[in-house]
Design a protein around this nucleic acid. Structure first.
Length: 568
RNA sequence: CGGUGAGUGGCGCAGCUUGGUAGCGCACUUGGUUUGGGUCCAAGGGGUCGUAGGUUCGAAUCCUAUCUCACCGACCA
């Protein structure tokens, strides 16, 4: 490709709207342009990258035995009513009407459509297992699109759905997809981690997320420093190896006026936050005899809402209780609540349960207890896992300690079980002639998000440093002052033709620009290899090779250029 | 949805307080100049100042309404 025949669209300044580095660079390098909030046009350079990512995903899916199909973006509402997600999905599901006033949705995902398809097309156990996938546009009406294409409303997703008779077959395909995902991210060249995850609203039991590690990531992931244990912090089990010391102090009430937060109380009483416990009040599940439930954590720990709301006594979704209502019920404010003689169900985190002689609220404004001990002073409580793990915690698999890093979620795989197949009665006849509902798995990859994540992980002050597997071009030819020198033009044209003949993706910068402009643009776009042609080196029949990733520069003979670059 | 801020040529911004013929940098066009890291000089093209209404002799500027966008939060692939 010649730059004069191309839409380069690079910019010196990034638009004010861009906050994260990948968003800025995608705009500056001319990869995308915003049309409206969360909606982007892909320019030629961006589309080249996107297509490369999609090609790798497609290839690995095919190798893993999945079969490509293409389903409509616009889907009839009755399918969604059948699966109950017409109500459950909420405002993120964009609903539209056609000219006959019939309801439709723009598909945010395709479980309904694919299940309806399989229900109609597959009727025998002999056709199973079956794994269908597509690479296609999704629409989710996000509350707040942000970070450019990282969280856009319209995006491209690879979504696969597998169908099975029995858990064992599902487990096999799930493992095969897990491996395929690892292959995909390795081939693209990203530093990633598969982590145990919460299955959220999609449903099902077993689930893994694939995260690209980057400081700008929105998720915290915890992983062991010695084993391969890794989990989203939402799900990482907090183990407590400490055993509770026996009580050595008597309980007594002390005045703590104006002190309500843990840091206030700890400072006033000159104790460590780890010696204090905090009591959070959340709404109780309807089945509970009490209006609220108390969750007790050690002073330095944070509540994990995902874990807490799974407890049968806790309302789902987890809701912090209204302070006025709690005050009316307990006759004290949030900052003074404690588990001693508390007329509510008490759930105690494992680490808080290992405390002895601790400090807690006295259920009376302006007072705390000190020297409190479980069992002796608080008779009725249940020990649960309810906090976020922190760096340094023991790994749940018993090997090593946990570290925490930020990740960008680029893939998510689920064992769905029969959630959708049961609701839509999708089954086959078994060998014995009985109708049996199928088990399902689903496997998603955010193809557009991978592009942004790759930039987050691979850039410097000059611009993008594409992993070669997804670079828009492999080689840039930068001739200096070509319009003034016949031999430079001849050399450039020859190299360009030679690269094309070798099927190397080459961008020939034939603009009448100063060298600095060309260098800056090619580095901004992040082309891995550059060939710089100048008068100086041409005297020795040489050109300069530059590597974008390593910064390496070497002189090479003109007749060795093609071989040298194709070797890289 | 709550909070904060912003809408002025393609991009980045000034002008608004104190109303008086719309400006700067980048980009673009033409000519010259320069040529191994975003040259320099000159001339030029391009803007209903988000939209609607109001006040006024006169509104980018003041008032009202409304739309859009971004960031933080809540929410969520």
């Amino acid at each position: 490709m010649r730059t004069t025949d191309y839409l380069l669209a690079t910019q010196k300044e990034s638009p004010a709207e861009a906050e994260v580095i990948s968003h800025k660079l995608m705009l500056r390098a001319g990869l995308v342009r915003k049309l409206a909030s969360g909606l982007y046009t892909w320019l030629p350079t961006g589309l080249r990258v996107l297509n490369k990512v999609a090609a790798i995903v497609r290839d690995e899916m095919n190798k893993a035995g999945a079969i490509e199909i293409s389903m409509p973006v616009v889907q009839p509402a009755d399918l969604w009513q059948e699966s109950k997600r017409w109500e459950a999905y909420g405002p993120e599901l964009l609903r539209i009407k056609d000219r006959h006033e019939r309801d439709f949705v723009l598909g945010p995902t395709h479980e309904e459509v694919v299940t309806a398809l399989v229900k109609n097309e597959v009727s025998s156990y002999k056709q199973l297992p079956l794994n269908l996938y597509q690479i296609q546009t999704k629409f989710r009406d996000e509350v707040r699109p942000r970070f450019g294409i990282m969280r856009s409303r319209e995006f491209i997703m690879k979504d696969a759905y597998s169908f099975h008779l029995g858990e064992e077959s599902l487990e096999q395909t799930y493992q095969r997809m897990h491996q395929a995902y690892c292959n995909i991210f390795e081939r693209i060249g990203l530093e990633f981690r598969p982590v145990i995850a919460d299955s959220g609203s999609i449903g099902g039991a077993v689930s893994h997320e694939f995260h690209v590690l980057a400081d700008s990531g929105e998720d915290d992931i915890a992983f062991s420093d010695t084993s391969d244990y890794a989990a989203n912090i939402e799900l990482a089990e907090a183990v407590c190896l400490d055993t509770r010391a026996s009580a050595s102090a008597d309980i007594s009430k002390v005045a703590t006026p104006e002190a309500s937060s843990i840091s206030d109380v700890a400072a006033m009483l000159s104790v460590a936050a780890t010696q204090c416990i905090k009591t959070l009040i959340v709404d109780a599940d309807e089945s509970c005899d009490h209006p609220f439930v108390a969750i007790v954590l050690r002073g330095d720990h944070q509540l994990n809402e995902i874990k807490a709301e799974k407890h049968p006594l806790v309302a789902s979704p987890l809701t912090f209780a209204d302070e006025a209502k709690v005050s009316a019920h307990l006759s004290c404010k949030f900052g003074s609540i404690g588990p001693v003689a508390l007329p509510l169900p008490v759930l105690v985190d494992r680490s808080a349960a290992a405390c002895s002689d601790f400090v807690c609220g006295a259920n009376e404004d302006g007072f705390h207890y000190i020297g409190v001990n479980w069992e002796r002073d608080v008779a009725d409580f249940e020990i649960v896992d309810a906090r976020n793990v922190v760096a340094g915690d023991a790994s749940p698999d018993g090997k090593g300690t946990l570290q925490i890093r930020k990740g960008i979620e680029v893939g998510h795989i689920f064992q769905l079980g029969d959630k959708y197949s049961k609701a839509m009665n999708c089954g086959v006849l078994t060998e014995s002639g009985k109708h049996e509902v199928l088990k399902m798995g689903c496997y998603g990859i955010g193809v557009t998000r991978i592009v942004a994540a790759a930039i987050e992980q691979n850039h410097d002050q000059h611009g993008i440093k594409w992993p070669p597997a997804i670079a828009p071009f492999q080689v840039a030819i930068i001739p200096m002052n070509m319009h003034k020198s016949h031999r430079i033009m001849e050399t450039a044209l020859k190299l360009y033709a030679d690269f094309l003949a070798e099927n190397v993706e080459v961008l020939f910068d034939d603009r009448k620009e100063r060298p600095g402009v060309m260098f800056n643009d090619m580095e901004l776009i992040g082309i891995p290899h550059s060939i710089v042609i100048g008068e100086r080196n041409l005297d020795n029949q040489q050109v300069e090779y530059k590597n974008r990733l390593t910064g390496e520069k070497t002189l090479i003979n003109i007749d060795e250029v093609i071989a040298f670059v194709t070797n890289q």
